[in-house]
Simulated assay, not measured.
Amino acid sequence: MKEVVVLAHNIRSTHNIGSIFRTCEGLGVKKIFCSGYTPFPTFQGDKRLPHIADKLTRQIAKTSLGAEKIVPFLAIQDITEIINKLKKDGFDIIALEQTPNSVILPKLKTNPNQKIALLLGEEVHGITQNLLKECDYSIEIPMFGQKESFNVSVATGIALYKIICDS
């Protein structure tokens, strides 16, 4: 099975991140990296004020339903630093973002031994251009309705399912 990690950068909603945790647990994602202002559950050695950490953890748990206790995660300050480390460790960095050169998800081809880090961006504005430059490529989910995109947690589930089940 592929080694897949998720980079959740600037996800503002605790409900979205909770849903992402639950989806990652169900699909066997190895780790979630929470960066920028992405909320994250309480952990041993958490330096946040306890009442704030507990409040965020309770909100995340509403949609993660316990997955926040199962999926390993790391709260990081510098997303570029972790991207560079993952690249050195042999990961392909894939942005989930609509770009002029993005691969349409049904055409994505991966191999069983591939190591993939899926980069997610902010709900409204997506992934910044400077972060897109750090990625090996981007993928996008084709839309058939009138809306231009899916909710980030829904898009994450669709993309991860294709990435993990593709061989």
Rank of each mutant, 00 (worst) to 15 (best):
K2F: 10
V4K: 00
V4L: 01
A8C: 14
I11Q: 03
R12D: 12
H15D: 10
H15A: 13
I17F: 03
I17H: 00
I20M: 00
R22D: 10
C24D: 05
C24T: 06
E25N: 12
G26D: 08
K30F: 09
K31A: 06
F40W: 10
P41K: 02
T42E: 06
F43C: 00
Q44G: 04
P50G: 04
H51C: 04
A53I: 08
D54W: 08
T57A: 01
R58L: 00
R58Y: 02
Q59A: 13
A67M: 02
I70T: 13
I70G: 05
L74D: 12
L74G: 06
A75S: 15
Q77V: 14
K85Q: 13
F91W: 06
L96K: 01
Q98M: 12
P100Y: 07
V103E: 07
I104Q: 15
I104H: 11
I104S: 15
L105A: 03
I116L: 06
A117E: 14
T128N: 12
N130L: 14
L131A: 09
E134G: 02
C135D: 03
C135Q: 00
D136V: 11
I139L: 12
I141E: 11
F144T: 07
G145S: 08
Q146M: 14
E148A: 13
S153E: 03
A155C: 08
I158P: 06
Y161C: 10
C165E: 13
C165K: 15
D166K: 09
D166S: 15
S167W: 11
S167C: 11
